[in-house]
């Protein structure tokens, strides 16, 4: 088991109180698993990704444990996490590619990053070049400035860099969303390639685009309002999702081949609850067509079939 997350709770501090962005999340990531994490904006999916790597000043660790390769991570402690970051657990944050320092050459930036982790750039250079070739970049990019690279090239560069030390876990947050479709595919397929070559053991791919996850992820986890709604192998989620939210979400996505005139899709009415003082019970209750009295209690996230967990009273 690469990663075991148990009852993780991370809140945001605000003047009006705590925003429960991550409110009791439990899941496992098997060795070699690519887990897709999807949900609407504000559901806490990015918070989950960040919490595993870096809990900054705005965030407040409340409860829960995270074990990576059997070892408990000190996620609440920014300084102690330093020795794990980049080496054992690596994140490609949202907008990482636009955050590259425009005045530094790529190679210089890579060297700085490696040195700051106590790794000699010289030792890694051959491996770096080998991996750049793998993603279709030449070592010439090291002498370029970020502005000279296209979005797709920058994103692949960032991917190579963040996996250079063969971390156990890679968290990729919305790495395809700012790219054109053709680059999206290249970037997504690179993820699979990295896993096949053993550069990383497990991956959490966070995106709002379920169709990308269908292409690359082994399992899909759907989040709603700070909690997990459902986790199952990708094909199971696609064909027979159990949680009503998952079901409605997937059936609201237009596919190539579906036409408005022939089959009118529908969205999910309503908006997610505020996470400042979330209502008790199931958080999807107000929008759920299946809701009944029991939903006033909070549904547990339980395994209803092998590798298939759901938080819904109608199913459990």
């Amino acid at each position: 088991m690469t990663l075991q997350v148990t009852d993780l709770r991370v809140y945001y501090r605000t003047l009006a109180g705590d925003v429960r962005a991550l409110d009791g999340v439990t899941f496992d990531l098997a060795d070699g698993e690519i887990m897709g994490l999807a949900g609407e904006s504000g559901c806490g999916k990015s918070t989950l990704g960040n919490s595993l790597v870096r809990i900054d000043g705005r965030m407040k660790y409340v409860a829960g444990t995270v074990r990576l390769d059997g070892l408990e991570l000190p996620i609440a402690d920014m300084d102690r996490m330093d020795e794990f970051r980049f080496k054992d657990i690596s994140i490609i944050p949202q907008y990482a590619m636009s955050a590259l320092n425009p005045t530094r050459k790529i190679g210089r930036m890579v060297a700085d990053l490696l040195e700051s982790r106590g790794v000699r750039f010289g030792e890694m250079r051959t491996e770096l070049e080998r991996r750049l070739l793998l993603v279709g970049l030449t070592e010439a990019v090291l002498d370029r400035y970020p502005i000279e690279l296209s979005g797709g090239m920058k994103q692949r560069m960032v991917m190579v860099l963040s996996t250079l030390l063969n971390p156990s876990l890679l968290i990729a947050d919305e790495i395809t969303s700012a790219l054109d479709v053709t680059s999206q595919r290249a970037v997504a397929e690179t993820l699979v390639e990295f896993r096949a070559r053993g550069f990383v053991k497990g991956m959490i791919v966070i995106t709002h685009d379920v169709s990308i996850l269908y292409q690359v992820a082994d399992t899909l986890t759907i989040m709603y309002a700070g909690k997990l709604a459902e986790k199952a192998p990708t094909s199971v989620i696609m064909q027979k999702a159990l949680h009503p939210y998952t079901d409605l979400l997937i059936s609201s996505l237009p596919e190539v081949g579906v036409r408005f005139d022939e089959r009118r899709l529908s969205g999910i009415p309503g908006t997610p609850p505020s996470l400042l003082n979330p209502p008790p019970g199931c958080r999807f209750r107000d929008r759920c067509p299946l809701a009944f009295e029991k939903c006033a209690e909070e549904p547990p996230f339980v395994e209803v079939a092998p590798d298939h967990s759901v938080a819904c009273w109608k199913v459990a």
């Binding site: 609407e40 969205g267 999910i268």
Partner: peptide
């Protein structure tokens, strides 16, 4: 827009 609301806007165009 988010997936759960985008289809409604698209239907509106329809």
């Amino acid at each position: 827009l988010d997936a759960s609301t985008r289809i409604d806007v698209l239907n509106l165009l329809g």
